[in-house]
Design a protein around this nucleic acid. Sequence first.
DNA 1: CCTTGACCTGGAGCGCGCTCTAAGCCGTAC
DNA 2: GTACGGCTTAGAGCGCGCTCCAGGTCAAGG
Lengths: 138, 138
Amino acid sequence: MTAVTHPGAAPTSAGEDAREGLGIAEVAAITGVTPHTLRYYERIGLLSVPRDAAGRRIYGQAEINRVVFITRLRLTAMPIRDIQAYFRLVDEGPGNEDERLALLEAHRDTVKARITELESALGAIEFKIATYGGSCAP
Amino acid sequence: MTAVTHPGAAPTSAGEDAREGLGIAEVAAITGVTPHTLRYYERIGLLSVPRDAAGRRIYGQAEINRVVFITRLRLTAMPIRDIQAYFRLVDEGPGNEDERLALLEAHRDTVKARITELESALGAIEFKIATYGGSCAP
DNA sequence: CCTTGACCTGGAGCGCGCTCTAAGCCGTAC
DNA sequence: GTACGGCTTAGAGCGCGCTCCAGGTCAAGG
C-alpha cells in the first residue's frame, strides 16, 4: 500500500487546525450507530468517507448528516436496498431530484400505512386488555 | 373457494356434528398465514391443533382465534419469543391472568412508543420532502 | 385396481441486517 | 526501543422469522 509519506498527523499543515472531522468512535457516540455498522454502511455503498493520511475515516458534517438520515430511514424500517437506491441517485449528482423525491414520498406513504396498521392492531390489543378473559376471542 | 377437500367429511349420515373444524388450507385462506407458517407456529409451541383420524390438522374456532391473535401480535412486531411466553401462560390455564395482562400491557406500551417513534421520523422525512434540496442537512 | 393430490414429518435453506473475528498497521506514552 | 490501544481490511457468523424440500401416508375418484 501507499508508502504513506505521512503528512504528519495534523490534519492541516497550518493554522489552528481544529480537526474538522470526527473519528469513527466519535461518530458512533453521536449517532448511536456502532463503528461496525458504520463500516458496514460504507461497504454496501450507503456512504463514502474520506480518510486521513493513516487511512482512518474522517467524518465531516456532510457524512454525519447522512448517517443521521440513514438512521431515520432505518428507524422507519426502510429496507437497505431502498436506501441504497436512494443514495445511488444522490451520488449521481443533480438532475434526478424528482426521482429521489418519488422514493421518499413512496416511503412516506409506506410509513403512514404502517402507522395506521399499528394503530389498528394496537386498538385490538387494548380492547383485549380492557376485556381480558384470557381467551383469544375477538 | 370450492367444496373443500375436507377433513371432516360431509354429513354422510345424520347431520350431527358436521365438520366442526377447518383444514389447514382453509385457515390459511382465512387468516392470510401460509400453511407452512401455521405448521411452524405449531412446531414452536404457539399453537396446538387437534388432528382427525388421518392425522390432519382440524382447526376449531378457538385455534383460528388464536392464529388471528398471533397475527395481530406479529403485525405489531412482537418477537416470537414473547408470543411464546404469553401463550405458555395461557396454556398453563387459569390463575396467571395478571401475568398475561402484564405482558400485553408491556407490549402495548412498546407499540405506542414505536408509533411515536415512527411519527417523529415521519415528520423528519416529510420536512425533508417539503424542503427538498437533496442534501442530508437536518 | 391405480392415480391424484392435499396433507403429514423432520430438517435444511434463505434473506435481512447487522455483528464479530483475525490479522495487521499506526501513532503515542513510557 | 517497546507496548498499547484504536483504527484498518476481508470475510465469517448469527438471530430472526419464515420458507421450502424430500419422502411418506391417506382417502377419494376413475
